[in-house]
Write a protein that binds this DNA or RNA. Structure first.
Lengths: 237, 237
DNA sequence: TCCTCCTTGCGAACACTGTTCGTTGTCGAA
DNA sequence: TTCGACAACGAACAGTGTTCGCAAGGAGGA
Protein backbone atom coordinates (compact mmCIF):
# COMPACT_ATOMS: atom_id res chain seq x y z
CA UNK A 1 0.00 0.00 0.00
CA UNK A 2 1.51 3.25 -1.12
CA UNK A 3 0.14 6.75 -0.91
CA UNK A 4 -0.87 6.56 -4.57
CA UNK A 5 -3.53 4.00 -3.70
CA UNK A 6 -5.48 6.58 -1.75
CA UNK A 7 -5.84 8.86 -4.77
CA UNK A 8 -8.80 8.59 -7.08
CA UNK A 9 -7.66 7.25 -10.41
CA UNK A 10 -7.81 9.69 -13.35
CA UNK A 11 -11.07 9.05 -15.14
CA UNK A 12 -9.35 8.54 -18.50
CA UNK A 13 -7.62 5.49 -17.14
CA UNK A 14 -9.70 2.47 -17.80
CA UNK A 15 -10.60 1.42 -14.28
CA UNK A 16 -9.53 -1.99 -13.09
CA UNK A 17 -12.78 -3.71 -12.36
CA UNK A 18 -11.76 -5.68 -9.33
CA UNK A 19 -9.01 -4.95 -6.91
CA UNK A 20 -10.21 -7.82 -4.76
CA UNK A 21 -8.95 -11.37 -5.24
CA UNK A 22 -11.15 -13.11 -7.72
CA UNK A 23 -11.54 -16.56 -6.24
CA UNK A 24 -13.74 -15.38 -3.40
CA UNK A 25 -16.93 -17.15 -4.45
CA UNK A 26 -17.60 -20.82 -3.84
CA UNK A 27 -20.50 -23.17 -3.39
CA UNK A 28 -19.87 -23.31 0.36
CA UNK A 29 -19.78 -19.55 0.82
CA UNK A 30 -23.00 -19.19 -1.15
CA UNK A 31 -24.77 -21.84 0.92
CA UNK A 32 -23.52 -20.24 4.13
CA UNK A 33 -24.74 -16.80 3.08
CA UNK A 34 -28.11 -18.22 2.06
CA UNK A 35 -28.46 -20.03 5.37
CA UNK A 36 -27.64 -16.88 7.29
CA UNK A 37 -30.28 -14.96 5.37
CA UNK A 38 -32.79 -17.77 5.85
CA UNK A 39 -32.29 -17.83 9.60
CA UNK A 40 -32.49 -14.07 9.88
CA UNK A 41 -35.43 -13.28 7.64
CA UNK A 42 -37.11 -16.47 6.45
CA UNK A 43 -37.41 -18.10 3.06
CA UNK A 44 -39.32 -15.24 1.45
CA UNK A 45 -36.33 -12.95 1.91
CA UNK A 46 -34.03 -15.52 0.33
CA UNK A 47 -33.57 -14.17 -3.19
CA UNK A 48 -30.60 -14.72 -5.43
CA UNK A 49 -29.92 -10.99 -5.46
CA UNK A 50 -29.91 -10.74 -1.69
CA UNK A 51 -27.59 -13.70 -1.31
CA UNK A 52 -25.31 -12.10 -3.89
CA UNK A 53 -25.21 -8.70 -2.22
CA UNK A 54 -24.51 -10.48 1.05
CA UNK A 55 -21.38 -11.75 -0.69
CA UNK A 56 -20.59 -8.38 -2.29
CA UNK A 57 -21.36 -9.42 -5.84
CA UNK A 58 -24.19 -9.66 -8.36
CA UNK A 59 -26.81 -12.34 -8.78
CA UNK A 60 -25.43 -13.59 -12.08
CA UNK A 61 -22.21 -14.67 -10.41
CA UNK A 62 -23.98 -17.28 -8.35
CA UNK A 63 -25.00 -19.23 -11.43
CA UNK A 64 -21.44 -20.37 -12.00
CA UNK A 65 -21.65 -22.43 -8.82
CA UNK A 66 -25.31 -23.30 -8.59
CA UNK A 67 -27.67 -24.32 -11.39
CA UNK A 68 -30.87 -22.71 -10.12
CA UNK A 69 -32.39 -21.39 -6.95
CA UNK A 70 -33.98 -24.77 -6.34
CA UNK A 71 -30.56 -26.41 -6.27
CA UNK A 72 -29.34 -23.80 -3.83
CA UNK A 73 -32.30 -24.54 -1.59
CA UNK A 74 -31.55 -28.24 -1.81
CA UNK A 75 -27.99 -27.57 -0.71
CA UNK A 76 -29.16 -25.35 2.14
CA UNK A 77 -31.59 -28.02 3.27
CA UNK A 78 -28.89 -30.65 3.32
CA UNK A 79 -26.64 -28.31 5.26
CA UNK A 80 -29.36 -27.90 7.88
CA UNK A 81 -29.90 -31.64 8.06
CA UNK A 82 -26.18 -31.95 8.73
CA UNK A 83 -26.76 -30.35 12.13
CA UNK A 84 -28.56 -33.48 13.32
CA UNK A 85 -26.34 -36.02 15.00
CA UNK A 86 -27.05 -39.66 14.55
CA UNK A 87 -27.08 -42.35 17.24
CA UNK A 88 -25.70 -45.85 16.94
CA UNK A 89 -28.76 -48.13 16.69
CA UNK A 90 -29.45 -50.00 19.91
CA UNK A 91 -32.27 -52.54 19.69
CA UNK A 92 -33.14 -52.28 23.38
CA UNK A 93 -33.80 -48.55 23.19
CA UNK A 94 -35.23 -48.19 19.69
CA UNK A 95 -38.32 -46.24 20.76
CA UNK A 96 -36.34 -43.61 22.60
CA UNK A 97 -33.87 -43.46 19.73
CA UNK A 98 -36.38 -42.78 16.95
CA UNK A 99 -38.26 -40.36 19.15
CA UNK A 100 -35.06 -38.44 19.87
CA UNK A 101 -33.96 -38.50 16.23
CA UNK A 102 -37.27 -37.21 14.89
CA UNK A 103 -37.44 -34.61 17.65
CA UNK A 104 -33.94 -33.45 16.71
CA UNK A 105 -34.95 -33.26 13.07
CA UNK A 106 -37.99 -31.21 13.93
CA UNK A 107 -35.86 -28.86 16.00
CA UNK A 108 -33.16 -28.47 13.36
CA UNK A 109 -35.72 -27.60 10.69
CA UNK A 110 -37.75 -25.31 12.92
CA UNK A 111 -34.72 -23.34 14.03
CA UNK A 112 -33.73 -22.57 10.44
CA UNK A 113 -36.66 -20.55 9.20
CA UNK A 114 -39.20 -22.17 6.95
CA UNK A 115 -36.61 -24.26 5.13
CA UNK A 116 -38.90 -27.25 5.77
CA UNK A 117 -41.09 -25.90 2.97
CA UNK A 118 -38.60 -27.15 0.38
CA UNK A 119 -38.77 -30.63 1.92
CA UNK A 120 -42.43 -31.11 1.08
CA UNK A 121 -43.19 -32.68 -2.24
CA UNK A 122 -39.59 -33.73 -2.85
CA UNK A 123 -37.78 -36.96 -2.18
CA UNK A 124 -34.73 -35.60 -0.38
CA UNK A 125 -31.65 -37.34 -1.76
CA UNK A 126 -28.82 -35.19 -0.43
CA UNK A 127 -26.04 -36.98 1.44
CA UNK A 128 -27.27 -35.92 4.86
CA UNK A 129 -30.87 -36.86 4.06
CA UNK A 130 -29.68 -40.29 3.04
CA UNK A 131 -27.63 -40.74 6.18
CA UNK A 132 -30.56 -39.75 8.37
CA UNK A 133 -32.95 -42.04 6.51
CA UNK A 134 -30.47 -44.91 6.74
CA UNK A 135 -30.05 -44.50 10.49
CA UNK A 136 -33.77 -44.08 11.08
CA UNK A 137 -34.55 -47.24 9.19
CA UNK A 138 -31.77 -49.14 10.94
CA UNK A 139 -33.21 -48.20 14.33
CA UNK A 140 -36.75 -49.18 13.36
CA UNK A 141 -35.60 -52.44 11.87
CA UNK A 142 -33.61 -53.25 14.98
CA UNK A 143 -36.83 -52.65 16.90
CA UNK A 144 -38.58 -55.32 14.91
CA UNK A 145 -40.79 -53.08 12.79
CA UNK A 146 -41.71 -54.86 9.51
CA UNK A 147 -39.77 -53.80 6.43
CA UNK A 148 -42.66 -52.19 4.55
CA UNK A 149 -43.63 -50.23 7.65
CA UNK A 150 -40.01 -49.13 8.10
CA UNK A 151 -39.82 -47.84 4.54
CA UNK A 152 -43.10 -45.99 4.63
CA UNK A 153 -42.56 -44.66 8.14
CA UNK A 154 -39.44 -42.80 7.12
CA UNK A 155 -41.42 -41.03 4.39
CA UNK A 156 -44.66 -40.51 6.27
CA UNK A 157 -43.11 -39.38 9.54
CA UNK A 158 -40.73 -37.22 7.54
CA UNK A 159 -43.71 -35.40 6.05
CA UNK A 160 -45.17 -34.99 9.49
CA UNK A 161 -41.92 -33.62 10.88
CA UNK A 162 -41.62 -31.15 8.03
CA UNK A 163 -45.20 -29.96 8.31
CA UNK A 164 -45.03 -29.33 12.03
CA UNK A 165 -41.62 -27.69 11.65
CA UNK A 166 -43.19 -25.19 9.27
CA UNK A 167 -45.86 -24.47 11.84
CA UNK A 168 -43.28 -23.94 14.57
CA UNK A 169 -41.13 -21.80 12.30
CA UNK A 170 -44.08 -19.61 11.39
CA UNK A 171 -44.56 -19.09 15.10
CA UNK A 172 -40.98 -17.90 15.35
CA UNK A 173 -41.46 -15.77 12.22
CA UNK A 174 -44.37 -14.02 13.85
CA UNK A 175 -42.31 -13.27 16.92
CA UNK A 176 -39.47 -11.88 14.85
CA UNK A 177 -41.86 -9.69 12.89
CA UNK A 178 -42.77 -8.04 16.17
CA UNK A 179 -46.04 -9.92 16.58
CA UNK A 180 -47.00 -11.57 19.83
CA UNK A 181 -48.01 -15.22 19.39
CA UNK A 182 -49.99 -15.35 22.63
CA UNK A 183 -51.86 -12.25 21.55
CA UNK A 184 -52.55 -13.90 18.19
CA UNK A 185 -53.78 -17.08 19.82
CA UNK A 186 -55.93 -14.98 22.11
CA UNK A 187 -57.55 -13.44 19.06
CA UNK A 188 -58.17 -16.86 17.53
CA UNK A 189 -59.57 -18.08 20.81
CA UNK A 190 -61.97 -15.15 21.15
CA UNK A 191 -63.13 -15.66 17.56
CA UNK A 192 -63.86 -19.33 18.22
CA UNK A 193 -65.61 -18.53 21.46
CA UNK A 194 -67.85 -16.07 19.64
CA UNK A 195 -69.07 -18.72 17.18
CA UNK A 196 -72.73 -19.73 17.42
CA UNK A 197 -72.75 -22.42 20.09
CA UNK A 198 -75.65 -24.31 18.57
CA UNK A 199 -73.79 -25.06 15.37
CA UNK A 200 -70.30 -25.25 16.92
CA UNK A 201 -70.80 -26.90 20.30
CA UNK A 202 -67.47 -28.72 20.38
CA UNK A 203 -65.36 -25.87 19.02
CA UNK A 204 -66.76 -23.40 21.52
CA UNK A 205 -66.43 -25.90 24.35
CA UNK A 206 -62.82 -26.76 23.58
CA UNK A 207 -61.31 -23.32 22.90
CA UNK A 208 -58.97 -23.75 25.85
CA UNK A 209 -57.71 -27.11 24.60
CA UNK A 210 -57.49 -25.86 21.01
CA UNK A 211 -55.19 -23.00 21.90
CA UNK A 212 -53.23 -24.89 24.55
CA UNK A 213 -49.60 -25.81 24.12
CA UNK A 214 -46.90 -24.58 21.77
CA UNK A 215 -45.50 -26.11 18.62
CA UNK A 216 -43.30 -28.52 20.50
CA UNK A 217 -46.18 -29.84 22.61
CA UNK A 218 -48.28 -30.50 19.52
CA UNK A 219 -45.37 -32.11 17.72
CA UNK A 220 -44.68 -34.33 20.70
CA UNK A 221 -48.32 -35.39 20.83
CA UNK A 222 -48.40 -36.38 17.16
CA UNK A 223 -45.03 -38.08 17.32
CA UNK A 224 -46.15 -40.18 20.26
CA UNK A 225 -49.19 -41.32 18.26
CA UNK A 226 -47.01 -42.33 15.33
CA UNK A 227 -44.29 -44.05 17.34
CA UNK A 228 -46.73 -46.01 19.45
CA UNK A 229 -48.49 -47.04 16.26
CA UNK A 230 -45.19 -48.34 14.92
CA UNK A 231 -44.46 -50.09 18.20
CA UNK A 232 -47.80 -51.87 17.91
CA UNK A 233 -46.70 -53.26 14.56
CA UNK A 234 -43.27 -54.37 15.77
CA UNK A 235 -42.71 -58.05 16.44
CA UNK A 236 -42.04 -58.59 20.14
CA UNK A 237 -38.35 -58.82 20.98
CA UNK B 1 -75.34 -23.36 -0.53
CA UNK B 2 -75.01 -24.50 3.01
CA UNK B 3 -75.17 -23.20 6.52
CA UNK B 4 -71.62 -21.92 6.12
CA UNK B 5 -72.95 -18.85 4.38
CA UNK B 6 -74.61 -17.68 7.55
CA UNK B 7 -71.35 -17.59 9.51
CA UNK B 8 -69.66 -14.35 10.47
CA UNK B 9 -66.62 -13.93 8.29
CA UNK B 10 -63.25 -13.89 10.07
CA UNK B 11 -62.50 -10.24 10.86
CA UNK B 12 -59.28 -10.24 8.82
CA UNK B 13 -61.19 -11.03 5.63
CA UNK B 14 -61.95 -7.65 4.16
CA UNK B 15 -65.70 -7.44 3.75
CA UNK B 16 -66.84 -7.32 0.18
CA UNK B 17 -67.98 -3.89 -0.92
CA UNK B 18 -71.63 -4.26 -0.22
CA UNK B 19 -74.65 -3.93 -2.44
CA UNK B 20 -72.67 -2.73 -5.40
CA UNK B 21 -73.97 -3.24 -8.89
CA UNK B 22 -71.39 -5.47 -10.48
CA UNK B 23 -70.89 -5.89 -14.14
CA UNK B 24 -68.96 -9.08 -14.71
CA UNK B 25 -66.46 -9.33 -11.88
CA UNK B 26 -67.29 -10.70 -8.48
CA UNK B 27 -65.57 -12.47 -5.65
CA UNK B 28 -67.15 -15.75 -6.69
CA UNK B 29 -66.08 -15.50 -10.32
CA UNK B 30 -62.53 -14.62 -9.27
CA UNK B 31 -62.32 -17.59 -6.91
CA UNK B 32 -63.73 -19.89 -9.60
CA UNK B 33 -61.21 -18.69 -12.16
CA UNK B 34 -58.37 -19.07 -9.67
CA UNK B 35 -59.49 -22.59 -8.81
CA UNK B 36 -59.67 -23.56 -12.45
CA UNK B 37 -56.14 -22.27 -13.01
CA UNK B 38 -54.93 -24.04 -9.89
CA UNK B 39 -56.33 -27.37 -10.98
CA UNK B 40 -54.97 -27.01 -14.47
CA UNK B 41 -51.47 -25.75 -13.81
CA UNK B 42 -50.72 -25.73 -10.11
CA UNK B 43 -50.13 -22.99 -7.60
CA UNK B 44 -47.05 -21.59 -9.30
CA UNK B 45 -49.12 -20.65 -12.33
CA UNK B 46 -51.66 -18.89 -10.14
CA UNK B 47 -50.73 -15.24 -10.58
CA UNK B 48 -53.06 -12.29 -10.26
CA UNK B 49 -52.42 -11.40 -13.89
CA UNK B 50 -53.30 -14.86 -15.14
CA UNK B 51 -56.50 -14.98 -13.11
CA UNK B 52 -57.37 -11.57 -14.50
CA UNK B 53 -56.76 -12.50 -18.14
CA UNK B 54 -58.80 -15.65 -17.53
CA UNK B 55 -61.63 -13.25 -16.73
CA UNK B 56 -60.81 -10.94 -19.62
CA UNK B 57 -59.58 -8.06 -17.52
CA UNK B 58 -56.45 -6.64 -15.88
CA UNK B 59 -54.83 -7.56 -12.59
CA UNK B 60 -55.69 -4.27 -10.94
CA UNK B 61 -59.39 -4.98 -11.26
CA UNK B 62 -59.17 -7.91 -8.90
CA UNK B 63 -58.14 -5.71 -6.02
CA UNK B 64 -61.62 -4.24 -5.78
CA UNK B 65 -62.87 -7.64 -4.63
CA UNK B 66 -59.90 -9.18 -2.87
CA UNK B 67 -57.39 -7.51 -0.57
CA UNK B 68 -54.27 -9.46 -1.55
CA UNK B 69 -53.25 -12.66 -3.21
CA UNK B 70 -53.09 -14.34 0.19
CA UNK B 71 -56.74 -13.59 0.79
CA UNK B 72 -57.62 -15.00 -2.60
CA UNK B 73 -55.74 -18.18 -1.73
CA UNK B 74 -57.61 -18.39 1.57
CA UNK B 75 -60.89 -18.13 -0.31
CA UNK B 76 -59.82 -20.76 -2.82
CA UNK B 77 -58.77 -23.09 -0.02
CA UNK B 78 -62.10 -22.74 1.70
CA UNK B 79 -63.87 -23.38 -1.58
CA UNK B 80 -61.94 -26.62 -1.97
CA UNK B 81 -62.72 -27.65 1.59
CA UNK B 82 -66.37 -27.12 0.74
CA UNK B 83 -66.19 -30.17 -1.51
CA UNK B 84 -65.86 -32.43 1.50
CA UNK B 85 -69.15 -33.76 2.82
CA UNK B 86 -69.58 -34.29 6.50
CA UNK B 87 -71.12 -37.29 8.26
CA UNK B 88 -73.46 -37.21 11.24
CA UNK B 89 -71.35 -38.38 14.18
CA UNK B 90 -72.14 -41.95 15.22
CA UNK B 91 -70.35 -43.14 18.35
CA UNK B 92 -70.40 -46.79 17.32
CA UNK B 93 -68.55 -46.15 14.08
CA UNK B 94 -66.24 -43.29 15.08
CA UNK B 95 -63.07 -44.94 13.77
CA UNK B 96 -64.47 -45.50 10.30
CA UNK B 97 -65.93 -42.00 10.34
CA UNK B 98 -62.72 -40.11 11.12
CA UNK B 99 -60.78 -42.31 8.75
CA UNK B 100 -63.24 -41.56 5.95
CA UNK B 101 -63.34 -37.86 6.73
CA UNK B 102 -59.58 -37.46 6.75
CA UNK B 103 -59.27 -39.56 3.63
CA UNK B 104 -61.84 -37.35 1.92
CA UNK B 105 -59.94 -34.25 3.02
CA UNK B 106 -56.72 -35.66 1.65
CA UNK B 107 -58.42 -36.47 -1.64
CA UNK B 108 -60.08 -33.06 -1.96
CA UNK B 109 -56.78 -31.27 -1.37
CA UNK B 110 -54.75 -33.56 -3.60
CA UNK B 111 -57.15 -33.23 -6.50
CA UNK B 112 -56.86 -29.44 -6.47
CA UNK B 113 -53.23 -28.89 -7.26
CA UNK B 114 -50.88 -27.91 -4.46
CA UNK B 115 -53.46 -25.78 -2.70
CA UNK B 116 -52.52 -27.67 0.47
CA UNK B 117 -49.36 -25.51 0.55
CA UNK B 118 -51.40 -22.55 1.77
CA UNK B 119 -52.75 -24.66 4.61
CA UNK B 120 -49.35 -25.16 6.22
CA UNK B 121 -48.33 -22.62 8.78
CA UNK B 122 -51.81 -21.09 8.99
CA UNK B 123 -54.67 -21.77 11.34
CA UNK B 124 -57.47 -22.20 8.80
CA UNK B 125 -60.50 -20.27 10.02
CA UNK B 126 -62.71 -20.09 6.95
CA UNK B 127 -66.30 -21.26 7.37
CA UNK B 128 -65.70 -24.62 5.75
CA UNK B 129 -62.52 -25.27 7.77
CA UNK B 130 -64.47 -24.58 10.92
CA UNK B 131 -67.29 -26.92 9.95
CA UNK B 132 -64.85 -29.71 9.17
CA UNK B 133 -62.96 -29.18 12.42
CA UNK B 134 -66.21 -29.14 14.39
CA UNK B 135 -67.42 -32.39 12.86
CA UNK B 136 -64.04 -34.07 13.28
CA UNK B 137 -63.87 -33.16 16.92
CA UNK B 138 -67.47 -34.22 17.49
CA UNK B 139 -66.72 -37.66 16.05
CA UNK B 140 -63.56 -38.09 18.12
CA UNK B 141 -65.30 -36.94 21.26
CA UNK B 142 -68.17 -39.34 20.66
CA UNK B 143 -65.52 -42.05 20.39
CA UNK B 144 -64.28 -41.27 23.87
CA UNK B 145 -61.01 -39.58 22.93
CA UNK B 146 -59.92 -37.19 25.73
CA UNK B 147 -60.57 -33.48 25.08
CA UNK B 148 -56.94 -32.40 24.84
CA UNK B 149 -56.20 -35.22 22.44
CA UNK B 150 -59.25 -34.25 20.37
CA UNK B 151 -58.10 -30.66 20.10
CA UNK B 152 -54.51 -31.48 19.19
CA UNK B 153 -55.47 -34.31 16.87
CA UNK B 154 -57.44 -32.00 14.62
CA UNK B 155 -54.37 -29.78 14.26
CA UNK B 156 -51.73 -32.48 14.06
CA UNK B 157 -53.60 -34.80 11.73
CA UNK B 158 -54.56 -31.76 9.68
CA UNK B 159 -50.88 -31.01 9.17
CA UNK B 160 -50.29 -34.60 8.20
CA UNK B 161 -53.15 -34.58 5.72
CA UNK B 162 -51.90 -31.36 4.15
CA UNK B 163 -48.31 -32.58 3.90
CA UNK B 164 -49.21 -35.86 2.24
CA UNK B 165 -51.69 -34.09 -0.04
CA UNK B 166 -48.84 -31.93 -1.30
CA UNK B 167 -46.83 -35.04 -2.01
CA UNK B 168 -49.70 -36.66 -3.89
CA UNK B 169 -50.38 -33.44 -5.79
CA UNK B 170 -46.75 -33.17 -6.83
CA UNK B 171 -47.10 -36.66 -8.23
CA UNK B 172 -50.05 -35.50 -10.31
CA UNK B 173 -48.10 -32.39 -11.31
CA UNK B 174 -45.31 -34.54 -12.64
CA UNK B 175 -47.75 -36.56 -14.70
CA UNK B 176 -49.36 -33.44 -16.13
CA UNK B 177 -45.96 -32.03 -17.04
CA UNK B 178 -45.44 -35.08 -19.24
CA UNK B 179 -43.19 -36.90 -16.80
CA UNK B 180 -43.74 -40.52 -15.89
CA UNK B 181 -43.89 -41.10 -12.12
CA UNK B 182 -43.00 -44.79 -12.38
CA UNK B 183 -40.01 -43.86 -14.49
CA UNK B 184 -39.04 -41.27 -11.89
CA UNK B 185 -39.37 -43.75 -9.07
CA UNK B 186 -37.35 -46.22 -11.09
CA UNK B 187 -34.60 -43.63 -11.32
CA UNK B 188 -34.71 -43.02 -7.56
CA UNK B 189 -34.65 -46.74 -6.97
CA UNK B 190 -31.63 -47.29 -9.18
CA UNK B 191 -29.83 -44.43 -7.44
CA UNK B 192 -30.47 -45.94 -4.04
CA UNK B 193 -29.44 -49.36 -5.22
CA UNK B 194 -26.16 -47.93 -6.46
CA UNK B 195 -25.26 -46.53 -3.04
CA UNK B 196 -22.28 -48.11 -1.23
CA UNK B 197 -23.81 -51.09 0.55
CA UNK B 198 -21.36 -50.92 3.45
CA UNK B 199 -22.49 -47.47 4.51
CA UNK B 200 -26.14 -47.82 3.43
CA UNK B 201 -27.06 -51.43 4.18
CA UNK B 202 -30.70 -50.80 5.02
CA UNK B 203 -31.38 -48.35 2.22
CA UNK B 204 -29.95 -50.67 -0.42
CA UNK B 205 -31.78 -53.64 1.09
CA UNK B 206 -35.15 -51.90 1.18
CA UNK B 207 -35.23 -50.16 -2.21
CA UNK B 208 -38.28 -52.22 -3.21
CA UNK B 209 -40.19 -51.26 -0.08
CA UNK B 210 -39.06 -47.64 -0.30
CA UNK B 211 -40.44 -47.17 -3.79
CA UNK B 212 -43.54 -49.33 -3.26
CA UNK B 213 -47.04 -47.92 -3.22
CA UNK B 214 -48.48 -44.62 -4.41
CA UNK B 215 -49.44 -41.52 -2.46
CA UNK B 216 -52.71 -42.99 -1.29
CA UNK B 217 -51.05 -46.13 0.08
CA UNK B 218 -48.58 -44.06 2.07
CA UNK B 219 -51.27 -41.76 3.33
CA UNK B 220 -53.39 -44.74 4.39
CA UNK B 221 -50.45 -46.22 6.26
CA UNK B 222 -49.76 -43.03 8.20
CA UNK B 223 -53.41 -42.38 8.88
CA UNK B 224 -53.83 -45.86 10.30
CA UNK B 225 -50.90 -45.22 12.67
CA UNK B 226 -52.48 -41.97 13.87
CA UNK B 227 -56.02 -43.26 14.23
CA UNK B 228 -54.97 -46.39 16.07
CA UNK B 229 -52.90 -44.17 18.35
CA UNK B 230 -56.00 -42.12 19.10
CA UNK B 231 -58.05 -45.26 19.62
CA UNK B 232 -55.53 -46.41 22.21
CA UNK B 233 -56.14 -43.18 24.15
CA UNK B 234 -59.91 -43.40 23.96
CA UNK B 235 -61.81 -44.50 27.01
CA UNK B 236 -63.52 -47.83 26.35
CA UNK B 237 -67.17 -47.47 25.34
C1' DT C 1 7.34 -15.70 -24.11
C1' DC C 2 3.22 -15.84 -26.50
C1' DC C 3 -1.11 -17.54 -27.74
C1' DT C 4 -4.88 -19.94 -27.15
C1' DC C 5 -8.84 -22.19 -24.25
C1' DC C 6 -11.76 -22.17 -20.33
C1' DT C 7 -13.71 -20.92 -16.15
C1' DT C 8 -15.27 -17.21 -13.26
C1' DG C 9 -17.19 -12.64 -12.50
C1' DC C 10 -20.64 -9.46 -13.54
C1' DG C 11 -23.54 -5.47 -15.67
C1' DA C 12 -27.47 -5.30 -18.44
C1' DA C 13 -31.49 -7.05 -20.02
C1' DC C 14 -35.85 -10.07 -20.36
C1' DA C 15 -40.00 -11.70 -18.88
C1' DC C 16 -42.24 -12.20 -15.12
C1' DT C 17 -44.35 -11.16 -10.15
C1' DG C 18 -47.68 -8.46 -6.43
C1' DT C 19 -49.37 -4.10 -5.67
C1' DT C 20 -50.57 1.03 -6.05
C1' DC C 21 -51.94 5.23 -8.37
C1' DG C 22 -54.66 8.14 -11.14
C1' DT C 23 -57.94 8.26 -14.50
C1' DT C 24 -62.02 6.78 -17.04
C1' DG C 25 -66.55 5.22 -17.57
C1' DT C 26 -70.89 3.95 -15.87
C1' DC C 27 -74.77 3.57 -12.84
C1' DG C 28 -78.12 4.49 -8.93
C1' DA C 29 -80.02 8.00 -6.28
C1' DA C 30 -81.39 12.67 -5.61
C1' DT D 1 -80.54 15.99 -15.22
C1' DT D 2 -76.99 16.28 -12.18
C1' DC D 3 -73.86 14.29 -9.03
C1' DG D 4 -71.18 11.38 -6.39
C1' DA D 5 -69.60 6.84 -5.75
C1' DC D 6 -66.99 3.22 -7.26
C1' DA D 7 -65.75 -0.73 -10.41
C1' DA D 8 -62.58 -1.11 -14.13
C1' DC D 9 -58.11 -0.66 -15.80
C1' DG D 10 -53.58 1.11 -18.13
C1' DA D 11 -49.35 2.38 -16.48
C1' DA D 12 -45.91 2.28 -13.37
C1' DC D 13 -42.85 0.65 -9.39
C1' DA D 14 -40.02 -2.33 -7.09
C1' DG D 15 -38.99 -6.72 -6.87
C1' DT D 16 -38.12 -11.73 -8.74
C1' DG D 17 -35.26 -15.86 -11.41
C1' DT D 18 -32.52 -16.39 -15.20
C1' DT D 19 -29.74 -15.57 -19.61
C1' DC D 20 -26.49 -13.22 -22.51
C1' DG D 21 -22.38 -11.22 -23.84
C1' DC D 22 -18.27 -9.49 -22.60
C1' DA D 23 -14.01 -8.79 -19.59
C1' DA D 24 -10.45 -10.72 -16.65
C1' DG D 25 -7.43 -14.04 -15.27
C1' DG D 26 -5.15 -18.66 -14.91
C1' DA D 27 -3.62 -23.12 -17.10
C1' DG D 28 -1.56 -25.54 -20.73
C1' DG D 29 0.78 -26.02 -24.75
C1' DA D 30 3.88 -24.28 -28.75
Amino acid sequence: MTAADALPEPPWWTPRKNAAPRRTLSRESIVTAALKLLRAEGIDALSMRRVATELGTGAASLYAHVAHKEELLDLVLDEVLGEIDLPVPDATRWRQQVTALWTDSHAALARNGDIARVLLGRVPLGPNSLRIAETTMAILRAGGVPDQAVAWAVDVVGSFVAATAIETAEHVNLQRAGGDPTEYYGQVRRYMQALPADRFPVTTALTAELTAGDGDDRFGFGLELLVSGLAAQARPA
